[in-house]
Computed example of a mutant assay.
Amino acid sequence: MKLIKSWRWFGENDSVTLNWLKENGIEEVVTALHHISNGEVWPEEEILKVKSKIEAAGLGWSVVESLPVTEAIKTASDLRDQHIQNYKTSLRNLAACGIKTVVYNFMPVLDWARTDLNYQIPGLGESMLFDYPTFAAFDMYILKRPGAENDYPTELKVAAKQAFEKMTADDAERLAHNIIVVTQGFIDGVIDPSIEDYKQEFLNHLQRYQHIDDVQLRANLTYFLNEVIPVAEEVGINLAIHPDDPPFAVLGLPRIFGNINDMEWLANTNPSQNNGIAFCAGSFSARADNDVVEMAGKYAHRIHFAHLRNTQTLPDGSFYESGHINGTVDMKALVNVFLKEMKERSARIPMRPDHGLKGVEDEGLTANPGYPQFGRLKGLREVEHLEEELLHP
């Protein structure tokens, strides 16, 4: 029994066509209703429009990534209960259309962060890098977040100052725009890219978390889960939380899902089997003290969906995306965890090759940051090869 070969597709504006996916052995598409604003109900007729296009190409759609959890829910502000009611309605509508798994995240403001979207790995291709000193320089000297200097150790502050002093004004603007706008724009980000002073708008969002720490954010997640999990159980949908990316504190924001202790907390907070995990190996592996294979093995029964990619961590806390096979994670051992779990539950787990290295074949092709067409296909083939080695040694 093998993992279900799926692919993240960004809808009609995606440069990758459904027919190409079918021709290259993809079984299921992972997508969302990107045209509907965060917090609004996903109508059944809109879900069916997307589903019919996918099925017309001979593909399936069982995983939504993502049904966004709004900032109102994360901060427990005035619109929280209305947005949760809308979320419940969307879950019912998705279930009526045959969707089995819904991915979400509980990351405040920033969905993911990288400092270099065109990082070159000699001999391998173009990747993405999170350089900690550069990110700290963005926080302290470009964004100028109040109190930012208190969040970094002396050694990192020195490195950040040196990194900033090497930047031109254009470099600094490009870095800020990439972190705040470019990496967030295609995943339902909170910042309107048309806003001229996007950095101030970003600071305004950060300010809303001034009095929300990890404890309070967990309480807000608990409230959300206790509201929506009964509906998920009722309609037969598995909810799957995506880990924080990176899985450690950034910008003074609370971070509550990045290590094995957080996984244990999630399981204890709401024991329902519908309260599960979207296991992103790349996100978890960006934290050097995470044993990703151990984490997957311990909570395999809660994993409803998998992102397989690798990272290489660096001594100062930085990391870069190193493809799918080589890196911090023993990918063969991780794939073996999933194969054993599928045998145990007699059901296949959907997997997608997450991100990928941009190589020669991707030159000149349009793609969202981190989502090269042929780089992801190469990663998928590498994972398939590991499956074959494990199933037929």
Rank of each mutant, 00 (worst) to 15 (best):
E65F: 13
V182L: 15
L390Q: 13
R345V: 15
R145M: 06
P246D: 07
G25N: 11
N105W: 03
T328Q: 06
A296G: 15
L117I: 05
N336G: 13
P193L: 14
G189N: 06
Y104M: 10
V293S: 04
L91V: 09
R287F: 14
Y132G: 04
L33V: 01
S127R: 09
R255A: 02
E55C: 07
E45G: 03
H307P: 08
S272R: 05
I195Y: 12
K2R: 15
P350Y: 00
K332V: 00
H392T: 12
L67A: 05
E12P: 04
Q210R: 15
M167T: 02
T183M: 14
L21K: 00
K378F: 04
R80V: 08
V235H: 09
K157M: 07
L225M: 14
Y299L: 06
K166Q: 11
L203G: 10
R381M: 07
V228C: 09
H242E: 08
E27Y: 01
G282Q: 07
I142V: 13
I180V: 14
K22M: 03
I256H: 01
P247C: 03
R8S: 04
I277A: 06
L314E: 04
I84F: 05
L334S: 00
K157L: 14
I349G: 06
S90A: 08
N274S: 12
N19Q: 11
G375M: 10
P369H: 14
D116I: 06
K340F: 05
A296L: 07
K49H: 05
I54S: 11
T154E: 15
L21Y: 06
E363P: 00
L143K: 03
S272C: 02
A347L: 13
E294L: 12
A169Q: 15
E361Y: 15
L386R: 06
V30D: 10
E55T: 10
L156G: 02
L390R: 08
G11E: 03
T328C: 13
T70M: 10
V292I: 08
T366W: 12
I303F: 01
E389M: 12
A176D: 11
P43Y: 08
N118P: 00
E155H: 03
K161A: 05
D362S: 09
D316W: 01
L314I: 05
H205N: 00
A281T: 10
Q82A: 12
E388Q: 14
R381W: 01
N93A: 03
I303A: 12
E321L: 00
F130G: 01
L79Q: 02
V41W: 14
P350D: 01
D151T: 04
N336D: 12
I26L: 09
G60S: 14
L79Y: 15
G39C: 09
L206D: 02
F305S: 12
I229P: 02
P146A: 02
R348Y: 00
A163G: 12
W42T: 00
V109C: 03
E387Q: 10
